[in-house]
Simulated assay, not measured.
Amino acid sequence: MIKVHGALARITRNFGWLYTSHSFSFGGYFDPGNTEFGPLRVFNDDRVQPLKGFDFHKHEEMEIVTVVLRGELQHEDTLGNKTVTRAGEVQRMTAGTGIEHSETNPSASEEVELLQLWFTPNEEGLTPSYEQAAYDLDSRKNEWVPVVTGRPGESAAGDGDDGVKPARIHQDLTLYLAELEPGQALTFSQKPGRRMYVFVIEGSATADGAYKLSRRDAARITEQERLELHTETGARLMLIDLP
């Protein structure tokens, strides 16, 4: 079953320094019928203005993945990490028993655009940790590129000729990205009983020949073991294979 959630159906807020759209209940927005999709708890689409961001704040018992689409995001945490994540990179933070961090845009002239996803971990009481990973969609077009995974076998499958490995996450899921050229199609197959979450980052695509997805639209897919996505104009896609 495929259920499309259009970009305009998201809750969008403009704080001046932050423009954000929530796909699930978050902060002051609460919909009891829209709190999660499997272990996927938060999917925020953020744009942060130059030299602005989130001051130090605490997280617990959550796996937090950030995909930078444009610009730079500076991360600092109580583990001593201080890094900058750029387009073409992803970060994974295990909050576990508790971690404080800040997220800021270090640029004085350009905003940063990012997607931030929160997943419930497969166990509580984990030791907090942080990791970054890089990927290159330009050299691997028209294929699913795993950038975050919790599956032992996915790491080897995700190693391209450049030797880049996906970030590790404490959950039975894999997050893929794909750069699909005009006129191309991609299929994805999974085991029975699992879920797929599809998000169109840029461009447009059609799912199984019937469901049209435009920029920032999402599809929540259940009870389906195979999916085909086709694009006429080109698309940058995210697909998450979820329990």
Rank of each mutant, 00 (worst) to 15 (best):
E76V: 15
F188R: 01
L186D: 02
V84E: 05
P128V: 10
Q91F: 12
R41N: 04
E76N: 12
D46P: 01
S129P: 08
V65F: 00
H57C: 12
A178C: 11
L173H: 09
V65D: 01
P146A: 04
F54N: 02
F119V: 02
Q190I: 13
Y197Q: 05
E131I: 14
K58Q: 13
Y135D: 10
L18A: 09
G98D: 09
V84G: 10
Q184V: 11
L40P: 02
F43P: 00
Y197E: 03
K212W: 12
A157E: 14
R92Q: 10
W17H: 03
A185V: 00
F24M: 02
L137I: 07
M196D: 00
R47N: 07
T206Y: 10
N81A: 11
V84W: 12
V112G: 04
E228G: 05
E202H: 05
I169L: 15
P166C: 11
V65Y: 00
G28N: 10
G183M: 07
M196W: 00
R216H: 12
G158L: 08
G33H: 03
E179S: 15
I2Y: 01
A157P: 06
L73Y: 10
R13N: 09
K3P: 00
G38P: 04
N14E: 11
Q91N: 10
N34I: 00
G88N: 10
K191C: 08
N34Q: 02
A156F: 11
L51F: 09
R215A: 14
T35D: 01
D241K: 03
N34C: 01
G234A: 11
E228S: 01
P152T: 06
N34M: 02
V145E: 11
G209Y: 14
E61N: 12
I240G: 01
E225W: 03
N105E: 07
F188S: 03
H230K: 14
S23L: 03
T231P: 02
V198A: 02
I2E: 00
R194V: 00
E110M: 14
G33T: 03
K141E: 03
E123P: 08
M1E: 04
G38M: 01
M93R: 13
P243Q: 03
K3C: 00
A7S: 14
S21R: 04
G98M: 09
E179Y: 04
L239V: 01
D55V: 10
A108S: 14
A235D: 06
A7T: 09
N105I: 03
N122Q: 12
N105M: 04
A7P: 05
E60C: 12
Q116E: 09
R70T: 12
D241S: 14
F37C: 01
A205V: 07
R13W: 08
G209D: 11
M62Q: 10
E100G: 11
H75T: 09
Q74A: 15
P39C: 05
P166W: 15
E89L: 09
E179Q: 13
P166L: 12
E131T: 13
F15V: 06
V65E: 00
L8C: 08
F188M: 04
A156M: 06
D159S: 12
A219N: 05
A9S: 13
V67T: 08
